[in-house]
Nucleic acid binder design. Sequence first.
DNA 1: AGTCATTATGATCTTTAGATCATAGAATCG
DNA 2: CGATTCTATGATCTAAAGATCATAATGACT
Lengths: 83, 83
Amino acid sequence: MKQLARTPKDIGHAIREARKGQRLSQAELASRSGLWQETISKIENGVASTKMETLFDVLAALDLEIQVQPRSKGAPSSMEDLF
Amino acid sequence: MKQLARTPKDIGHAIREARKGQRLSQAELASRSGLWQETISKIENGVASTKMETLFDVLAALDLEIQVQPRSKGAPSSMEDLF
DNA sequence: AGTCATTATGATCTTTAGATCATAGAATCG
DNA sequence: CGATTCTATGATCTAAAGATCATAATGACT
């Protein structure tokens, strides 16, 4: 399951999917990553443009990592963002 | 050229490599991404744990994107970080 | 060595993410 | 339906990112 991300919203989205895939509540993820449920909510919804530090905390809690790569041709980030 | 990242430092590193690959100075990258040379320097050195918003500004300026994925087995982030 | 370009660092100020508490809204399920 | 669990939002406060200016350190090149 690889998710492209070009905006904070994309990442929030990817995080939510991963969290659900692992059957975790925001509160659980929060406690695992040393954050608050409210903060997770905001991150997932792209409300606050999180600090990297924080981002990596939740990525680690979900056992995810990030790959930096040249922009791929085709896919414009994520289809849904167009609507 | 794909670069794994599990810490802000990893990302700073990846950014610096990409910037050099494109023969840009920090000042040029800064102006392209609407930031300051000083800020780019700090990001590349992992001094300040950048906001995602800012991060995406520089990624866009370098025509990079990010992929969120499950942690790969082997490679522990980056070899150099161990020393 | 001396010059020019590039990068690092340090200070101050403003803005904002995140903590924290409270609570409103959804969703799920007996 | 009502109860419970999960998620969103709103307020206040504190810590820290980024702008901005100045300048030091480093690197390249002749």
